[in-house]
């Protein structure tokens, strides 16, 4: 078990390091044009300067708040609707066509509409993130409820559970694995949408920073923005994984 684990860690770290090493070598050897493909090692300086002098941390904070805020705004009602759709067929039949249709629209296409409705301030950023994950989470939650073995419902009803008690003591915990699948997928969508929205209609944020640096040909800064975005995605995924473990203690030590 131990040697296997060590090998796993080594291999996990090896891939990005190898990529960076190749890039560094090609850049130093003059194969890549250093103006468009700056050496990775030179980005460390750029990153530090951006943090200390150009307010990179503020951009990161703003984007993170938009993602997390929009996520909560979308996910909480989505879970409630998804549970209701799973438990009660009229709710399911009523919302299903709407959900399927809206689910298929690339969410960034809705941005102009969201801006018309909510202005170009923070509200529209939160709403576009919320919209982009809402039906994804709702539909995953619904299918999670539908996959719960009906025996659990019967057992709860037999012991005297009311509708409300079925809702939170059977449907919610039973659908949690699927809810988290929806949230994880939603996180990817949220990142895409927030960077896109910041490209188009923002005065701060990591997406805005990348687009601005691209337009002014500050290529090193643009690359730093990309790496930061990747790290944000990774960090948020880790956060979600942690939440998942907290929310489902029965899945640990399986």
């Amino acid at each position: 078990m131990r040697p296997r684990r060590a090998a796993e860690i080594t291999l996990t770290i090896a891939a990005p390091l190898l990529l960076l090493a190749i890039w560094e070598l090609l850049s130093r050897g003059g194969v890549l044009n250093p103006i468009f493909w700056p050496r990775p090692s030179s980005l460390i300086d750029t990153f530090w300067r951006m943090v200390t002098k150009e307010g990179l941390m503020t951009d990161i904070r703003i984007s993170l708040l938009r993602i997390i805020g929009g996520f909560l705004l979308g996910a909480v009602p989505a879970v409630v609707l998804g549970l209701a759709m799973g438990l009660f067929w009229p709710v399911r039949v009523f919302f299903m066509p709407l959900a399927s249709a809206i689910y298929a629209i690339p969410k960034i296409a809705v941005l102009p509409l969201v801006i018309i409705a909510f202005g170009i301030g923070e509200a529209s950023k939160l709403v576009i993130v919320a919209v982009s994950i809402f039906f994804l989470v709702a539909l995953n939650t619904m299918s999670g409820v539908l996959e719960i073995d009906p025996t659990y419902r019967d057992a709860a009803r037999n012991l005297g559970a009311s509708r409300w008690e079925l809702f939170y003591s059977v449907a919610l915990p039973g659908a949690l694995p699927q809810i988290f699948t929806g949230l994880r997928l939603g996180l990817g969508f949220a990142l895409i949408v927030i960077v896109g929205a910041e490209f188009l209609a923002a005065k701060r944020g990591i997406g805005y920073q990348i687009w601005e640096d691209y337009q002014t040909l500050r290529i090193k800064q643009m690359f730093v923005g990309l790496v930061v975005t990747a790290m944000m995605g990774w960090g948020l995924t880790m956060l979600l994984t942690g939440l998942e473990r907290l929310a489902m203690p029965w899945r640990r030590s399986a």
């Binding site: 073995d149 025996t151 019967d154 057992a155 059977v170 915990p173 039973g174 029965w250």
Partner: peptide, 16 residues
């Protein structure tokens, strides 16, 4: 009052 013991899996996996 009645209480039922079901066939197959009925013990809630999410509770101790």
């Amino acid at each position: 009052t009645n209480a039922m013991v079901f066939q197959g899996r009925s013990v809630f996996p999410w509770l101790t």
